[in-house]
Design a protein around this nucleic acid. Structure first.
Lengths: 234, 234
DNA sequence: CCGGATTAATTGTGATCACGTTTTGGCGGC
DNA sequence: GCCGCCAAAACGTGATCACAATTAATCCGG
């Protein structure tokens, strides 16, 4: 019933750092689940339900919900109930425009890093992209969504641009759930010609303009798939 | 001590609508105060302090803080204390870029409305702009910031684009506090040649491209003022 | 077998409390 | 006069409870 990934306890940066707040933990897990499309649009959430799912009290669940609602990932119904945000034709167009306005120029900043940093990032991206390709061959749409989001955010986190990153995260939080529905509808077979190879190549070359257009094309193609898979029902 | 505007009780859309949640009320007032620059960067906030200020219990204050933190308006220090977000050189550059990437194209959508709607909006904007000009003549930087934000958001709320609007609100929540500091430093005399007249004209003409460039120029000019007033101290 | 009313379960919200941490204010020693 | 220590005040956070509202379930009459 859950499908909400447990935290990766292997990364022990513990030493002098304070243990993460419980509500932060809940927020991160829920956030990842939404971005990678593990929760379908309209899916009802509740404070007590989430609290039980995570084995915590109501307070951290409330805070996580409020935070994700502020980022547009969750909707508050007129009767104050909470659900994963739904998609609409107009919203889809807005999301597409906004992604095109932000993500390419954010990615371009990654191409301006040092050659070593670019190479390290390129290798990391390649690793993710291979896992992504295998997910496509396997027809595993869950893993596809997961690795696709990991690929993009590995790229977007590289230039340290917290403002941009926050905006882009908000966009993915709103696209993620719906994306997954569409992939489930179309299957992964229609997704095997993404522009990730071009993205990595442009990054390696240190060419911001080329990286920009590669990301733009990747977005446009992905979003056009979504539009293709969009049917006006609910 | 407060300076947090009380809600406008005159707008009684009551009838069948549910009374607004207390935390929503707190959020809105705090949000407006931040956008219009009534709270300086680094200003410490606390759950109990806010609760006392608004005459409510701690819960609504907590939720409002969490929400504004998610939008980048408030910072959570490493020791979990809350403060109005501070500015930095890099952040300022990011905010400038992001504003230029989003606000002109959002405004352009307003130019595509019907002639009647555009005319109504143009008149509303003119009214605000007159108040703004008087604030400048008066040298009242608080009112300047207030009317300037009102002008822009009247324009941005016209096209019903909630996704875009959310992103732009986040940007203003991060620029507002710092903007006010800069205005206080430079005085309002350096602000009397904004592009608002061009914006209204382009809107009346229904010319999206012209509106886009007018908004872009307004942003660039405002942000260049900020850069001029920026000194690395604190 | 179905539809509507009544009851029961679930939900968001606000309030309050306890606990451990952090910040602050003041006092004493150098 | 200044710096470090110590106590006190303030803080974020999680837990729990009560309440009003909404949603779901149940039951009954047809």
């Amino acid at each position: 019933m859950t499908a909400l990934a447990a935290p990766d306890k292997t990364s022990q940066d513990n030493g002098l750092t304070r243990p993460a707040a419980v509500h932060e933990e809940v927020y991160q897990r829920l956030r990842r689940a939404i971005i990678s499309g593990q929760l379908e649009p309209g899916r009802a959430l509740s404070v007590r339900g989430l609290a039980a799912e995570f084995g915590v009290s109501a307070m951290p669940a409330r805070e996580a919900i409020r935070q994700l609602a502020a980022q547009g990932a969750l909707e508050i119904t007129p009767t104050r109930r909470v659900a994963v945000a739904r998609m609409s034709q107009e919203k889809l167009e807005e999301l597409c425009d906004a992604r095109l306005a932000l993500e390419p120029s954010l990615a371009a900043r990654a191409a301006k890093a040092s050659a070593e940093a670019r190479e390290a990032l390129a290798e990391a991206l390649t690793t993710i992209d291979e896992a992504l390709d295998q997910a496509i061959k396997r027809g595993d749409s869950a893993d596809y969504a997961k690795y696709n989001s990991e690929f993009h955010f590995a790229l977007y986190e590289a230039p340290e641009a917290p403002v941009y990153l926050g905006l882009v995260e908000s966009l993915w939080l709103q696209t993620g759930p719906f994306m997954r529905v569409v992939i489930g509808r179309l299957g992964t077979s229609s997704l095997d010609d993404d522009k990730h190879k071009e993205i990595v190549a442009a990054l390696r070359a240190g060419d911001p303009e080329k990286l920009e257009t590669a990301v733009r094309e990747d977005i446009m193609q992905g979003m056009s798939n979504i539009v293709r898979g969009y049917s006006p029902e609910e």
